[in-house]
């Protein structure tokens, strides 16, 4: 019983990060119709940059965090200016391969810059646990995870639903041309979308490497987040916010209870299996809306 609860909380904390990362590329997908397969690599790139700021350059933690987020924003801006323009309207295969090739390219660069060893991330939160009612034991970093991602998602929700630029993003994702015709600067919306997406990637990177260590393999979190997004329904932000933590919990539970049966590795597999099952029975995801296609 105690164990289950611990797994659930740990899974919840991890799953929130999936939601955070997924929000990033779902926004891009909604506004420009491009699914960015390089998101996971951007997450880990930001983590490496954070590592350099803190450990290698010795910049104080808070400033390093801000600098990393700024780096993320800059990266988003550059990618939008440099690549996106050419991508809109291209065949899907070209989009997929371009983002994947870009991701491999970044991985190569990271390989050169930071090597292939697992680097240990700077300690963000004090070590230690609290025990609640003798049932659940939580370490501080998990609590921090939960609180921070929750907080970030709330901020994002407010931004998306209450501000003008959020409204412009929604309008653009519904109908790009109509958005232009009412005076929305669509290109600017795209830039903002990419910037937000890369900032969430940076936040996700800083958080997730704090427990996993910094290593190129962490990039696969991007694919897991993508599985979350597809299971939730690509257009549905609420769906993603719900499915992320759910996926995290299932992941941890299956790692705990299925791993002994198959000697390990279930954690990294479960999101993909769930995705395949969901896609067969509900191709547009659990909360997504059906896409109507006419000839």
């Amino acid at each position: 019983m105690e164990n289950i609860l611990n797994y659930i909380i740990a899974g919840l904390a991890n799953g929130c990060i999936y939601s955070l990362v997924a929000i990033g590329f779902v926004l891009i997908y909604k506004s420009s119709g491009i699914l960015n397969f390089a998101q996971g690599t951007i997450v880990i790139l930001n983590a490496f940059v954070f590592y350099s700021f803190t450990i290698q350059l010795g910049i104080p933690m808070v400033i390093a965090i801000l600098l990393t987020l700024a780096f993320g924003a800059l990266l988003g801006f550059v990618i939008e200016r440099f690549i996106l323009d050419r991508l809109i309207g291209q065949p899907i295969l070209a989009v997929i391969i371009l983002t994947l090739a870009f991701s491999e390219f970044l991985k190569g660069i990271m390989n050169l810059g930071w090597g292939t060893d697992i680097l240990s991330a700077p300690q963000l939160f004090p070590r230690g646990n609290i025990t609640i009612l003798n049932i659940v034991t939580l370490d501080y970093s998990r609590i921090a995870f939960l609180v921070i991602t929750f907080f970030l998602i709330i901020i994002f929700a407010i931004f998306y639903n209450k501000t003008k630029i959020g409204l412009a993003m929604k309008a653009t994702s519904d109908d790009t041309i109509a958005a232009g015709s009412v005076g929305i600067r669509v290109r600017r919306v795209f830039v903002v979308t990419w910037i937000i997406s890369c900032i969430t990637a940076a936040a996700g990177g800083i958080l997730v490497t704090n427990v996993m260590g910094i290593h190129i393999q962490v990039a696969e979190i991007g694919f897991k987040a993508m599985a979350v997004a597809l299971v939730g329904g690509l257009q549905s932000l609420p769906g993603i916010i719900i499915i992320g933590p759910a996926m995290g919990i299932i992941e941890f539970l299956s790692a705990a209870y299925l791993d002994p049966l198959v000697d390990g590795g279930m954690r990294d597999l479960v999101p993909f299996i769930i995705l395949l099952i969901v896609l067969i029975f509900r191709p547009s995801g659990i909360f997504g809306w059906k896409h109507i296609e006419r000839i």
Partner: peptide, 28 residues
Amino acid sequence: LPALRIKGFYLAFATLAAFYVIRFILIH
């Protein structure tokens, strides 16, 4: 099989998932 119901990005990602599943099965 998923290709019967999905295409585009969805199919691309479903085959990516297949990649990991097959790899897992082969390894284990």
